[in-house]
Amino acid sequence: MKIVTICGAGIGSSGVLKVNAERALRALDLEATVVAADVSTVKVVAADAQIILTTQEFVEAIGKTNADIIVVVNLFDTSELKQKLESALG
């Protein structure tokens, strides 16, 4: 499974989101490759992704995609991430 985290520059928020998503996946005992990217590359990077993790600001720019988009509010809230990943994958 592939998960892509998206932010504006592909280095800050998406990096934090990647680290914390990996933490949540470990806690859920799920395996996935998590890739951080900037929104301008989303069409290419997320072409084969099941899930896109991002914040509200980028939903419109991401546009049409086959992946499930999960919108995260607090990037450090592992329980929020766990719950949202679990319901998307479950």
Partner: peptide
């Protein structure tokens, strides 16, 4: 970055 994409840098 914030003008273009909004206040997403407020990460927590």
């Amino acid at each position: 970055m914030i003008e273009n994409f909004g206040p997403y840098v407020v990460i927590a």
